[in-house]
Design a protein around this nucleic acid. Structure first.
Lengths: 169, 169
DNA sequence: GCCCATTACTTGGCCGGCCAAGGTAAAGTT
DNA sequence: AACTTTACCTTGGCCGGCCAAGTAATGGGC
């Protein structure tokens, strides 16, 4: 076997491994995978609306709150300021969002959904409803509630020490 | 009130909203938030090791499997090929990964963890263990199992029609 | 042997997300 | 009033992730 010459290519730390065992916490793994799949699913539903996953969160918040100071938006969504800035720049360019300086505070910016964006509202809502249903298919109400409850607890855990959790509002 | 002149700045679609109601499925929302927090928590633990969140998945797989064809790696992780290419380029540059052409197939590339990366193994594993514990703090074993089970079901749901699920292997 | 479909990977572009650093304006101190 | 701190936002850089398009090699049909 001349492939034997490639013996130097062995895993190298196989000896250190109990077989098949770098894999860490099962829930963490599952969470990552599920989150990614969920995001992809959201993306598929959203792309027809001209939105990218993540933007719908922001829009929902704007539809709910009307004109808001950008700082409040950032706090409410608990995102990095720079992230929000860029998202808003793109959403503004596509015409779903309008920004104007806050007359009362020349540092601040007021953000609001444009009239044009309102046509999206229904679609986004139904997309999310469909996503929710797709996600939870085959789970009975009790299981759904339990999942929501457990996710809530986990969120609480991860929020602690991570600082700046929106729930702290 | 001169702010009245800004009346045109109203939410614009408030009328269309049952109050406070663009918000979609509660589980989907929770899932997004939890996933983000989880990723951030992972990032904090990983940055000390010189890894970015996501890379540890790849490394774990490599540690488990030894030298692998990149195509298999892609299939196993169920990621976009281009994503894996870039991650590998970065990991190669930081010295955690080695790539060489597959002698049996000149299109293919064999990937493996370097010896140097082996020192990470322990740390990554403990980081994930700690992450898992942090994530699940306050959940008793039954709840943990239930969460894992429910996430599994959800993953199954989201996999269907999304094609190319690793579980299908 | 030739041609075409398939497979394997790369490149470039874009988005969400983070951090770090910068600039401007408001608020607090002295 | 002048100075310092704090708040608000932007810019630039980087990473994971996706898609679309492109190159190169393999393999199947004829």
């Amino acid at each position: 076997m001349d492939i034997d010459s490639a013996a130097a290519a062995e895993p190298a730390c196989t000896e250190l491994l109990t077989p098949g065992a770098a894999r860490g916490g099962p829930v963490s793994h599952a969470l990552s995978r599920v989150a990614r799949l969920h995001r992809i699913a959201a993306g598929r539903l959203l792309k027809d609306l001209g939105l990218y996953p993540g933007q719908e969160h922001l829009m929902m918040h704007l539809w709910d709150s009307g004109a808001v100071r950008q700082a409040d938006l950032i706090k409410a969504m608990d995102l990095d300021p720079s992230t929000v800035t860029k998202m808003l720049q793109r959403l503004e360019q596509t015409g779903y969002v309008r920004r104007r300086p806050d007359p009362d505070d020349r540092r601040a910016v007021l953000v609001e959904a444009t009239d044009g964006s309102c046509s999206l509202l229904t679609d986004v809502r139904s997309a999310w409803a469909s996503l929710e249903e797709h996600t939870l298919a085959g789970l009975d109400p009790a299981e759904r509630a339990e999942l929501a409850r457990l996710l809530g607890k986990v969120e609480g855990n991860l929020c602690q020490e991570t600082a700046g959790c929106p729930g702290t509002l």
